[in-house]
Simulated scan of single mutants.
Amino acid sequence: MARGKIEIKRIENSTNRQVTYSKRRNGIFKKASELTVLCDAKVSIIMLSSTGKLHEYISPSTTTKQIFDQYQNTLGVDLWSYHYERMQENLKKLKDVNKNLRKEIRQRMGEHLSDLSVEELRDLEQEMESSLKMVRDRKYQVINNQIETFKKKVRNVEQIHKNLLHEFDARDRDQYYGLVDNGGDYESVLGFSNGSSPVFALSLQPNPPNDLHSGVGSDLTFTLLE
C-alpha cells in the first residue's frame, strides 16, 4: 500500500516539527555518508534547527575549512574577506549608535546644548519633564509603601501593649490569676485547701514587658494555699 503524498509546508506543531527535522537530518547525513564512500566525494553539510542547535556532517579525513577553501578557489571568491567587511560595517554602525547615546546622555545632563535648535531644545525639555514625572511617581509609591508598613508595625505594637495592660489589670483584680486555665473553676482548686494538708499551686509570674522578646522564659514561683 503506497503512502499518501505529504504536502510540503511548515509544520505548525513544534513537537512534530522537531521530530521530522531529526528524522530527515539523519536521513540526509546517511545519504551523504553513502555518497562519500561510493563516489569518493567530499561532502560537508551544516544544519541549524529551529531551536538554534548546530548539526554538521563532514567527510572523513576532511575539515570544513578545507572544503570552504576549495569552494572559494573554484568560484574565485573570498568568503572570509566578505565576512570581515560585513563585520566592519556592523562595528561602524554600533559605534555610531554608541556615540549618539553618549551625546543624548550629556545633553540630558545639561551639556553640549549649543548646537541644538529651539525645536530640539523644546523636545529635550518635554522628554526630561516626562522622565522627571516618572521618577516622582515612583518615589511617592515607595514612600507610601513604607508608610503602610510602618502603620502595620505600630498597630501590632499597640495590640501587644493593650494585651499586656489587660493581663496586668486581671492580675491586680484576681489574686489567683494564673492558677487555672481560662474557664476553670477556682472553687474546685481552692476546695482542696480545706483539708488537713496544705495545697501547693504553681503561680506563673511573667517577666516584665521589657523582657517579653528577650527569649527568657517566665519565672515559676510556688504559692502555698492555706
Rank of each mutant, 00 (worst) to 15 (best):
H83P: 02
S114V: 05
T36P: 01
V77G: 04
N73F: 10
F192W: 14
E7P: 02
S214T: 02
F222C: 06
E111G: 05
D169C: 11
T74E: 14
G4D: 04
V189M: 03
F168T: 10
I46C: 13
C39Y: 10
S33A: 11
L101P: 02
V118Q: 06
L165N: 13
I105Y: 03
E89D: 03
L220S: 07
Q72A: 04
E89H: 06
L204K: 12
S14H: 11
Y82H: 10
S203N: 06
R138L: 15
L91C: 08
D78S: 04
W80F: 13
A170I: 06
E226G: 14
T15D: 03
N73L: 13
K9S: 01
I67V: 11
G4C: 08
N100C: 08
V216K: 14
T149K: 11
E7R: 15
S131V: 11
M1A: 07
H112D: 14
M128C: 03
H161L: 13
N182W: 09
H161W: 05
R138P: 03
T223A: 12
F29T: 00
S81E: 15
D172W: 05
R155T: 07
E125D: 12
N163I: 00
N182L: 12
H55P: 02
V43Y: 00
N90G: 07
G4F: 13
K103E: 04
Q126R: 11
S50T: 12
S114W: 10
Y82D: 10
S33N: 09
L165M: 14
S131D: 14
H55E: 01
G27M: 14
P60V: 04
E129M: 08
K53S: 15
K93N: 06
K23S: 12
D181I: 15
T51K: 08
Y71A: 04
S117Y: 01
K103A: 04
S196C: 06
V118N: 09
Q146R: 12
H213Q: 13
S81D: 13
V43C: 00
R155G: 06
L124D: 04
R3W: 15
R86W: 08
T63C: 02
G178Y: 01
K9Q: 10
N16K: 14
V189K: 04
M47A: 11
L132A: 03
R138N: 10
